[in-house]
Design a binder for these strands. Structure first.
Lengths: 211, 211
DNA sequence: TCAACTATCTTAACGTTGTTAGGCCAACGG
DNA sequence: CCGTTGGCCTAACAACGTTAAGATAGTTGA
């Protein structure tokens, strides 16, 4: 009597095909430019079929974001093991930029839109906003660096320092996401520029001899 | 025989009403969420009437962006008079942040939404994009600072340095615009944080004794 | 003065979008 | 064997940006 399980497996398979096609098309052409009909055509179904697996186009995007958000969490997890708080801040920034450039579409949704209306998303609700935990993680590293006396005394506010560093990383990736197509800018490689921003800010914040 | 002029004036008036309504609605609800029909209803015209003044919805957006860029350019003009390139960079950053916080909606329209490429805007072509000139202005100050030997030798790429500084300023204001309502973050005053970012980056970039 | 013209705005429609209602059909449970 | 269910389809909805064609003024030339 494994037929029920086979049905379930086939359903999950179709669902995954939808997710795969949607991810590739969202990333390649953008969210707005990707139509439900095009996704359906790609996997050789009718648009209506998608609605038997996902409530709406937005729900489809949110599901993809949830799945790919683990990449950021993983990146942070590796950084968490670094004991030195200043070096950890550098790792956090690198992981953040890497996530943003690897998943620009999801980054745009998470950090560049005013308020995604995910209020009634029953899927994985309950726990706090992943962005909230990410900020707390960054702030913690700043607080440790301050407590260890690694920064100049005027930079003693963990929130302020966290916001400064976040701004630097968010600035470079969000500018590239929105303005990369402008031909009047000779964009430098974002990862390299981000690394130099961290380097410069780290030196500017540091107490003692310029490292 | 001033009737011709009156007609022209009335046409310009209608055109301006369209622009005003569109700006307010783009800014309040976003570009995609604002429909041509809604703009028309607001000014008590038919949607078609708008097309007698603007070629498309994109053209409408572009016109608004052009006007806003000019306002930003005015803010830069004061900074242009500062001879010392490093101090000028600080003034440019302050003017940029001031513009963004004074006209947050305009800023969002200009720097936080991906502008669709308008292929052939022959209307007032020839002169460069105002955003292009703004970036060139920033880049020029960076180049002068580099040429004057004010920065460490590894920071010799004017484009890279310009993008670093731009990222810092854009990051802090764009984060505040999108995430200000999030309750899990204790936002510091953006002008102050921006000033500290400039301070930190300036010190991190500078050659010689820490100033 | 009156016909011709032009500018401005309207009505009606086209094609496309996300989404939904209702039905068809194979596969399952009793 | 028959009723129910799950998975997908056809057809359609309202709303979108945009366009074609026409109405109604005001202006202009003879």
């Amino acid at each position: 009597m494994g037929s029920k399980e086979r049905r379930e497996r086939q359903r999950a398979e179709t669902r995954q095909k939808i997710l795969d096609a949607a991810r590739e098309m969202f990333v390649r052409h953008g969210y707005e430019a990707t139509t439900m009909r095009a996704i359906a055509r790609r996997i050789e179904y009718t648009p209506t079929a998608i609605y038997h697996h996902f409530r709406s186009k937005d729900a489809l995007l949110y599901e993809l974001c949830d799945a790919d958000f683990r990449a950021l969490a993983d990146g942070f997890r590796a950084a968490a093991r670094v004991e030195d708080p200043v070096e950890r801040l550098d790792r956090i920034g690198a992981a953040y930029v890497d996530f943003a450039l690897t998943h620009p579409m999801h980054y745009q949704l998470l950090f560049m839109t005013r308020r995604p209306p995910l209020d009634e998303l029953d899927g994985a609700a309950g726990r706090g906003d992943p962005g909230e935990r990410a900020y707390a993680f960054l702030r913690q590293a700043c607080a440790e660096a301050i407590a260890a006396g690694r920064f100049r005394p005027e930079y003693g506010d963990a929130d302020e320092v966290a916001q400064m560093l976040w701004a630097g990383m968010h600035g470079i990736v969000s500018l590239q996401v929105t303005k990369q197509q402008e031909e009047w800018i000779e964009w430098r490689d974002a990862r390299r520029t981000a690394a130099r921003i961290r380097e410069v800010m780290s030196r500017g914040l540091a107490r003692g001899p310029t490292s």
